[in-house]
């Protein structure tokens, strides 16, 4: 690996890490989960826990903060 490639790799890993820590990948994870469960739609368990219809990106982010409204999490001191 030459220098440029390793710098690029490092920057990419850093961006991936920050995205994850900030929680920006939440919708991607939700989508991946939902798609994986679409295949096993015959499994009532899986269908029940992800809900029948996949939310759009906008709906998902609204739902996410609305869930935080009814389930608050403490921040440490």
């Amino acid at each position: 690996m030459n220098l440029l490639a390793s710098v690029r790799h490092g920057a990419k890993s850093f961006a991936w890490f920050m995205r994850g820590v900030m929680g920006e990948d939440a919708y991607d994870k939700y989508k991946a989960h939902h798609e994986a469960h679409d295949e096993s739609i015959h499994d009532p368990d899986a269908a029940a826990c992800s809900g029948p219809v996949m939310m759009t990106e906008r709906e998902f982010w609204r739902d996410q903060t609305d869930r935080q409204d009814i389930n608050p999490q403490g921040r440490c001191c």
Binding site: F17, G20, V21, G23, A26, K29, Y30, H33, C49, S50
Partner: peptide, 18 residues
């Protein structure tokens, strides 16, 4: 319990940061 929202497997390094 995966639901893609509250229960979602997260990479260990990312979760460490979280």
């Amino acid at each position: 319990k995966a639901d893609g929202k509250d229960f979602a497997a997260t990479d260990r390094r990312v979760l460490f940061g979280h």
